[in-house]
Design a protein around this nucleic acid. Structure first.
Lengths: 265, 265
DNA sequence: GGTGGTTGTTCAGTGGATTGAACAAGCGTG
DNA sequence: CACGCTTGTTCAATCCACTGAACAACCACC
């Protein structure tokens, strides 16, 4: 997707980093993560990030020594250590452990596909997935990202933000990403939904990211001031989706959200 | 585990990194990943890594801007971007996708707990887990590490290495980590097992990491020269473990390994 | 409230990381 | 095979990131 003609400068001109080498190294990791093939050469990186070749070479050597990237011939790709670090992050979230336990025991949810997600910049990121439903395997994985406007969790998390933050992210004339004919197209429409979500306490996504698939989501009340807000969602096939079922799911999701929000034994 | 009295210098004295800031930043991430609570203050990090406070402050600011870490008051912890990056790494491994598909269809394995792992320095790291067996939920997670000598996959991957590499990692007088009374204690014993594993083509772990639990593992033939070698394992309760079952599992594991090793439609 | 030991931030000097040009090695192409 | 166009590595000069000490803010404990 990234236009290879447009080098995205690692440094935003005026904003000089307090540790440029680190900022640039992070840009290297990003570039590798976003590259379609996942593999780039020194020259590729140097060109795309606008970093001199010799400097890039130094960065890559340091990153390789830290196992954050791997060299394979002349091509570099992400390293295994990133899996460790990502896992270390997730293992610290007690919510994830409890999430699994709860899903297994919940009468309705235990048979569905449930996910827990978190807001991450202008996207959501999936942290864990419970699959009671081996028949419907989602293509999305832990760690995957999604635009806020295209998912139920995204909308529900958006609804948790202050209005001026929402306005900053979605001015009225902004272009929203579109994945299906039913995707929301205007920021005005999105903000109207946000208002509705705040009233009813849950969000619905009706084939807006994948045709034939609907999603329900609720927010997890953020306990105390610390930690970013989490959201929960159930995914179901539109064909087998009924009002009563939806009501049950929302009820159980809210129970789960409540128990995640109030840490107890 | 880390003796807080012993600052592990980020730089190995003589070996000066071509990009010290990056190496130090990586050390910061490691320290945060290993910290029991997952949260450290600027001073903690400065002390433990032997980096001046002012420099540490700069590193942390740059890391935070890259979302590789998060600040929470005065404490720093790993950032969400690491989950993304780890996921990006895993999503590139086609093996993982095929692994899931195969497990679901395999007659015996589909009811068991199967994992795929990779060698990572002197440990193994789990890349994916299939659970046909909701009754027995493992405590281990994707991204977790394990010493080579304590798991069936570890031993089977060790058996793939050249003898001189094994000798370098496990000289005869080395102290092996111990987790149960049945854990291997001497490197000599370990190397004898490696020889046996090479003959029979699979490895067995008999309550060496967890009492009551046994594991079988086979290697995935590394197709071509590139990519590190992978291993597959099934975990079962010792109580419900029979010879015939073991034979079936090894057979299916080998089939899976073969299909992973020979990429096809 | 004073006091000792923290904490994180500021700032000017300097030593080392960064750099660009010049190098060597690979690869299609005519 | 010689040619252009890549690629990655080398090296000395310069600039800027790192440093250490001095600072301010905080907490805990008499």
């Amino acid at each position: 997707m990234a236009d290879s003609r447009t080098p995205r400068s690692a440094e935003g001109l005026g904003s000089s980093s307090p540790a440029p080498a680190v900022t640039r190294a992070a840009a290297v990791l990003d570039a590798l993560a976003e590259a379609p093939s996942g593999r780039l050469t020194l020259s590729d990186l140097s060109r795309e990030l606008g970093i001199p070749k010799s400097s890039t070479s130094n960065l890559l050597m340091a990153l390789e020594e830290a196992r954050l990237i791997t060299r394979e011939g002349a091509e570099f790709s992400l390293g295994r250590k990133l899996v460790e670090l990502g896992a270390a992050y997730l293992s610290r979230l007690d919510e994830v452990q409890e999430f699994y336990k709860f899903c297994e025991q919940a009468p309705t949810l235990s048979g569905e596909t449930v996910r827990i997600a978190m807001i991450d910049g202008d996207h959501i990121i999936y942290l864990a997935r419970y699959e009671g439903h081996p028949a419907v395997r989602l293509t999305s994985n832990i760690g995957d990202k999604m635009p806020l406007s295209l998912s139920a969790v995204g909308k529900v998390l958006l609804a948790q933000l202050h209005d001026h933050d929402i306005e900053a992210m979605f001015p009225d004339d902004v272009e929203l990403p579109v994945m299906t004919p039913k995707s929301l197209r205007s920021a005005v429409e999105l903000k109207a939904q946000v208002a509705a979500i705040r009233k009813q306490g849950y969000a619905l996504e009706d084939e807006e990211s994948t045709l034939g698939v609907v999603c329900l989501a609720v927010p997890v009340p953020t306990h105390g001031a610390h930690g970013p807000s989490l959201g929960l969602s159930v995914t179901a096939l539109k064909a087998t989706f009924s009002e009563e079922q939806a009501a049950l799911m929302v009820k159980e999701l809210k129970e789960l959200a409540h128990s995640l929000g109030n840490p107890m034994g």
